[in-house]
Amino acid sequence: MYPQTNSHPLPSTWVKLGSVLTPTQTWEGTMVRDPSVLYQSGQYKMWYWNDGSSIGYATSADGVNWTKYSQNPVFTNVLRPSVVYKSGTYYLFYAKADETAIGLATSTNPQGVFTDQGLVLSASQVWENGLIRGPSVWYDRETELFKLWYSASSISPEGVPWTEPAAIGYATSKDGITWNKYANNPIMQGLNDGSWLERAIETLRVYKQNNIYYGFYHGADARGISRIGLTTSIDGITWNPQVSDLILDLGNYEDFDSDFLYTTAPVYNSGWKLWYNGRNSNNSNPEVIGLAITTI
């Protein structure tokens, strides 16, 4: 289904460090999830979603110990942040609360105040089935383009009262506001092969390093249970997801990620750091954010 991309060495040894961000502020409710992380001037900056429709902000020197902004939340009535920085401005892309469109808010400060620029991309292609769920944006300085990978359509995992995305689309923009969708979307979807990628590829978070696009994604098996994989692309459009891409599997019964592994936030800084949210439905805080690392 997918053309083979060029072969690039992938980091193969990952170590889970456990959960690093849990609910401690009243506005968060019982969950923190869907992190977006930037590394700037010796500091990691994270934007994350709560169990409702608000976005928080936190900082860290090491990626493990986080200090939450005392005036959280920094933006409300939106879901699933993806933040990029360009020319002194933070661009916070978000999913509309009903998950039918993607919007943009901007600020010169990472904690805001954010100015809402409105909705910039709506469901319009048949395969999207009226749903656009989670943006992943990279500003490519070589091409001077904002590049967006987004989740769309839906599946229903067994035994849970919610849906998850089914496939990945791609779009580009010169200004972050006016977007052109790729004509041959979706660019990634389930393999229908009986593996952990059977039903869907639900999110794709992309990090460009040395002119290679590294795609961290979570895929769903026949029951809708999701795990995390890693693949590469030479153009950000042509990917070759396969069973051997798996880098993070379900944790043990008592671990925070025993049920599902969800959206990632990759950063390369003398080795890879990968934040992700995991779910353990038996916990009082069923979704929290964890960290996995590699030094390869």
Rank of each mutant, 00 (worst) to 15 (best):
Y268T: 01
S36N: 06
Y91Q: 04
Q111T: 04
N6A: 09
Q209H: 15
W66T: 01
L191I: 12
L38D: 09
Y69V: 00
V206Y: 11
D249G: 09
D116H: 06
W138G: 00
W149M: 07
D34R: 06
S36T: 15
P241M: 09
G169P: 09
F93I: 03
Q43M: 15
V113F: 10
G112L: 05
I228D: 00
S153Q: 06
V84D: 08
T30N: 10
A61Q: 13
S12P: 04
T76R: 12
A200K: 09
M46V: 11
A152D: 04
G229A: 07
A200T: 11
Y94N: 01
L230A: 07
Y91V: 13
M31R: 12
N77M: 11
A292M: 14
S124N: 12
T22F: 13
I225K: 03
W138A: 00
V64C: 03
N277A: 08
E144K: 13
I187K: 04
S60K: 13
N129R: 12
V37S: 10
L21P: 06
D140F: 13
N252Q: 14
G130P: 08
G29A: 07
K174G: 04
V206H: 06
W179T: 05
N50K: 04
P135L: 06
G215C: 09
S173G: 02
G18W: 15
L131K: 13
P135R: 04
Q189N: 01
T178P: 02
I225N: 00
P73C: 05
D193G: 02
G271E: 05
T178F: 14
N277V: 12
D116L: 02
T100H: 07
L261R: 05
P110C: 10
Y262P: 00
R223D: 11
Y69D: 01
D62A: 01
D257N: 08
F256Q: 03
T115P: 01
N72A: 03
T108L: 07
N109I: 00
N277S: 14
K181S: 09
Q209K: 11
E254S: 10
G52D: 10
D51T: 14
V288D: 05
Y262C: 00
M31V: 05
N277G: 04
Q189H: 06
P81R: 05
Q40M: 15
K16V: 00
E164C: 05
S270C: 10
L21W: 14
P286T: 02
S151W: 15
E254N: 10
I132F: 08
Q111R: 03
K181Q: 11
W162I: 06
I293C: 02
I168K: 08
N185S: 05
V78T: 13
L104Q: 06
A167W: 15
Q242G: 03
T231Y: 08
E128R: 08
V160G: 00
Y94K: 03
K45A: 05
V20H: 04
